[in-house]
Structure formats: structure tokens, C-alpha cells
């Protein structure tokens, strides 16, 4: 079940709304919404929900894993906006980038590997951020559906 961290979500919603009203043609990188998910669920990242984080539960997933595997199972992007996803390790409020990937073509699904570089610690989180570098309109539809990330 998806649960939201309310304070951030509310802030994001407010920020998003204000931005949308004042500037319908905007870049989206500032907007951050954080959700967590349970196993078997899919996660949607879009212009309103730009990020997702997942706890690193065990040492096997942490120091024991070589790769983070991200499965993009569905994409809506009729205007073929450039889409990338940045992957971070989040611990004690500090984000360290581990890698990034992009969709090609920009409406194509795929499986992606990001090397952990041995940097994952149990108790930390994996943070995914959707990046749409082009200017988009409020009416633009950009959505990617991911499976819960797995550790290899």
C-alpha cells in the first residue's frame, strides 16, 4: 500500500499548485514528492510525483548487492519528452548519486541496472527522481510506471 509522507506531500502539492498557476510552462525538477511502497506494488512517477524512495531492509540488499535493478513497465509520453531517472542512495538526509538512466525511445519500457558501488547501507534508502529536462506544459502527460526496485 502506498503511504505518503504527509508534510512533504502537502508542501509539494502546494508548491506544485502555486507553480502551476503562476507558470504553466515550467520545468519540473524542483517538485519533490516522496512516496514509499510495499512489495508487489507498482509506482508511478509523473510531473506531479517526481520521486520515489525505498528502504534498504537487509544487509543482503545493502552491502551485499552489486546492482539496483529498476524495471520500467509502462510509459505514457505522447510528446516524447526526454525522460531520465536519477538514482541516489539516501542516508541521514544526504543524497549520493549512484547513477542514472534514460528511456529510449522516450516512450519505451525497459530494465535498467545501476551499480551500487558498495555504497548501500541497511537503514538507508534508494531514491529515484524523474527528470524531464525539457519545458513541459501543465497539460502534458508524462508518466512512468515502475516496479519496486530490486537488489542483485
Amino acid at each position: 500500500m502506498v503511504t505518503k509522507i504527509m508534510a512533504i506531500a502537502i508542501f509539494s502539492f502546494f508548491y506544485n499548485s502555486v507553480e502551476s498557476c503562476s507558470n504553466p510552462d515550467k520545468t519540473n525538477q524542483e517538485i519533490v514528492d516522496i512516496v514509499e511502497t510495499q512489495e508487489e506494488e507498482t509506482i508511478n512517477l509523473n510531473l506531479g510525483h517526481l520521486s520515489y524512495r525505498q528502504k534498504i531492509g537487509s544487509d543482503k540488499d545493502g552491502k551485499g548487492s552489486e546492482f539496483i535493478k529498476i524495471q520500467v513497465v509502462d510509459v505514457t509520453n505522447p510528446k516524447l519528452h526526454s525522460i531520465a531517472v536519477e538514482v541516489f542512495h539516501l542516508e541521514n538526509g544526504t543524497e549520493n548519486i549512484l547513477g542514472s538512466f534514460a528511456l529510449y525511445p522516450s516512450d519505451n519500457i525497459g530494465n535498467f541496472l545501476i551499480a551500487t558501488q558498495g555504497k548501500l547501507n541497511p537503514g538507508g534508502m534508494v531514491l529515484l527522481k524523474l527528470v524531464v529536462p525539457e519545458t513541459t506544459k501543465q497539460s502534458d502527460s508524462v508518466n512512468i510506471t515502475l516496479k519496486k526496485v530490486s537488489f542483485l
Binding site: 526526454s82 525522460i83 531520465a84 547513477g99 542514472s100 538512466f101 534514460a102 528511456l103 529510449y104 525511445p105 522516450s106 525497459g110 535498467f112 541496472l113 545501476i114 529536462p133
Partner: peptide, 10 residues
């Protein structure tokens, strides 16, 4: 996934 797709995309 990383440089190849990203260059296409950007």
C-alpha cells in the same frame, strides 16, 4: 541504459 539512452534522449 545510462550514456547511450541518455544521449539519445537529451
Amino acid at each position: 541504459g545510462t550514456p547511450h539512452n541518455t544521449v539519445h534522449s537529451v
